[in-house]
Amino acid sequence: MLLDFNRLGGLRVALSAIAFLVGAFLLLPIVVIVLLSFGSSRYLQFPPPAWTLRWYEELFDNPDWLASFATSFEIAVVVAVAATLLGLMASFGLARGRFPGKEALRALFLTPMVMPVVVLAVALYAFFLRLQLNGTFVGFVIAHTIIALPFAIISISNALEGFDKSIEDAAVLCGASPLEAKLRVTLPAIRSGLFGAAIFSFLASWDEVVVAIFMASPDLQTLPVRIFSTLQQDLSPVIAAVSSILVALTVLLMAVAAIFRRGKPA
């Protein structure tokens, strides 16, 4: 009865009301920011006194913002490729290997996901000071790959564990080389896991801010770093414009993911 929506009685109203309010709580800030990005008030008055595209013009006229968009995108693409490749290999080892310390190794691979990012950020910052990697593209890629790797490994491992290895063995029996069997049978079968790994790794890097704040130099700033340092000075409406573009990208990504999921046999 507590699990049957139609027999909840008064509770049904209460649950629905709370669900509605929490939904509004989650949605409204995002909606407000998108509306304000088209509002004319520099002080973010709501409702806006008039509508304008001024903040988007300011954004696109500013080479620093554009450079940060490009930097973030380039780093995230390289990280997605690197983390997916490393994650694929590591997942093969974790899923099929039989060696002592395998569970400890799995735990080590997942640790960057559960430990406080600020500790990793400070530690890497100190290390990179010596290697002079702070503020470099390579430095960002290394740091973000470490953060993205657990997501890639979880996604690929899940797919690999759901794949029956005897199909790969059958291909080998039918005359394929072991490598050919992996490339032409196993990889296509786990492609949704690989796709997920690439997406999650991309997002882990694209949204990462704490490590980036420490590592960034005036010349090389990812988008989150530029937003963070701007926010410490003022709540410029240009950030509302940047935010709205990011929200639009998120919605787009969710739509792609939904289509992708629908296309897959259940």
Binding site: L86, F92, G93, R96, F99, F127
Partner: peptide, 25 residues
């Protein structure tokens, strides 16, 4: 050690750029 080797590139990355810096700190 069957099946360990594919994990080694990721292990090396984490040892050098994760375990060592955190222990250092």
């Amino acid at each position: 050690m069957a099946g360990f080797w594919p994990t080694s590139p990721a292990l090396m990355l984490l040892t050098v750029f994760f375990v060592a810096p955190v222990l250092g700190l």
